[in-house]
Amino acid sequence: MIINLMFIREMVRRFQEDEIPRLSAELAYYFLLSLFPFLIFLFTLLAYLPIPHEDILSVVRQYAPKEALHLIEASIHRVMGYQNGKLLSFSIIGAIWSASNGMNAIVRAFNRAYDVEENRPFFIARGVSVLLTIGMIFVIIVALVLPVFGKMIGLFLFSAFGFSKTFLTVWNALRWVISSLL
C-alpha cells in the first residue's frame, strides 16, 4: 500500500513537472492545424484522379455541417475544376511542414519527459522532424493499404513472378501481421 502511494505521488509530481497538459495541448494544436494543408493537398490531388466530383461531394455531405456545405462544395468544385501543379506542390510542402510541427512537438515532449537537453541546430532538428513525418506517412499508408488491397497485391505478385500457391497463403497471413506490427 505504501509503495502504491509513493508511486502515485511520484507520478503526479512528474506529471506536473513535465507539464503534460501543456505538451498534450501543443500536440493537439499542431496536428489539428496540419489537417487543413492536408485537405488542400488531398483535394488538389483528387483533380488528377478519375473520380467524379459528385462521388466526393456525396461523402463530404455526410460529414460536413449543413451551414458550411455550400461553401465547401464551391471550394471543392473550384479546386478540383482544374489541375494546378503549383497548388499541388505548395500544398504537399505545406502539409509536410505543418505535420512536422506536430512531430517536432513530440520530440520536444520526449526530451522533456526524459530530461534531455536539445543541442541540435534548428535545421537539423527540423530536418529530423520532417523525416519522421515522412516515415509516419509511409507507415500509415502501408498499415492501411495492406489490409484493404493486400489480397490484390498478392495476386499481382503471384501472377507477375510466377510464385507458388504457398506464396498466396503466406502472403495473406503476412500482410495482416505486417499491418499490425506497423
Rank of each mutant, 00 (worst) to 15 (best):
I3K: 10
M6I: 11
M6N: 11
F7C: 06
R9V: 13
E10M: 03
M11A: 08
R14D: 13
E17M: 07
E17T: 11
D18H: 12
D18Y: 15
E19S: 12
I20L: 00
L23H: 14
E26T: 03
A28S: 06
F31M: 10
F31V: 09
L32N: 12
S34E: 09
P37L: 03
F38I: 15
F38T: 14
I40M: 11
F41M: 13
F43W: 04
T44S: 14
L45P: 07
L45G: 13
L45K: 12
Y48P: 13
L49K: 13
P50A: 12
P50H: 09
P50W: 13
H53F: 15
I56N: 05
I56M: 04
S58R: 15
A64E: 01
A64T: 10
E67R: 14
A68W: 10
L69Q: 08
L71R: 12
I72L: 08
A74F: 11
A74R: 09
S75M: 06
I76A: 05
H77N: 09
R78L: 12
V79D: 01
Y82G: 00
Q83V: 11
N84Y: 02
N84A: 00
N84T: 00
N84K: 02
G85H: 09
L87P: 00
L88Y: 03
L88F: 07
L88D: 02
S89A: 11
I92H: 07
I93C: 12
I93Q: 13
I93W: 14
A95M: 15
W97L: 15
S98K: 15
A99K: 11
N101I: 08
G102F: 08
G102D: 04
A105K: 01
R108Y: 13
N111G: 14
N111K: 15
D115C: 00
D115V: 04
E118P: 11
I124T: 04
I124H: 01
I124Q: 03
R126V: 07
G127R: 00
G127A: 00
V128F: 10
L132C: 05
T133I: 03
I134T: 08
I134F: 10
I137Y: 08
I137K: 00
I137E: 02
F138W: 09
V139A: 02
I140D: 06
I141Q: 03
I141P: 00
I141K: 03
V142R: 01
A143K: 05
A143Y: 03
L146I: 02
P147R: 06
V148C: 02
F149P: 01
F149I: 05
F149L: 07
K151T: 02
K151A: 08
G154W: 02
G154I: 00
L155F: 07
L155S: 01
F156V: 09
L157T: 04
L157Q: 06
L157I: 11
F158G: 02
S159C: 07
S159W: 14
A160K: 05
F161D: 05
F161V: 04
S164L: 00
S164A: 03
S164M: 03
T166R: 14
W171A: 09
A173L: 14
L174T: 09
L174V: 07
R175D: 02
R175Y: 08
I178R: 08
S179I: 12
S179C: 12
L181C: 14
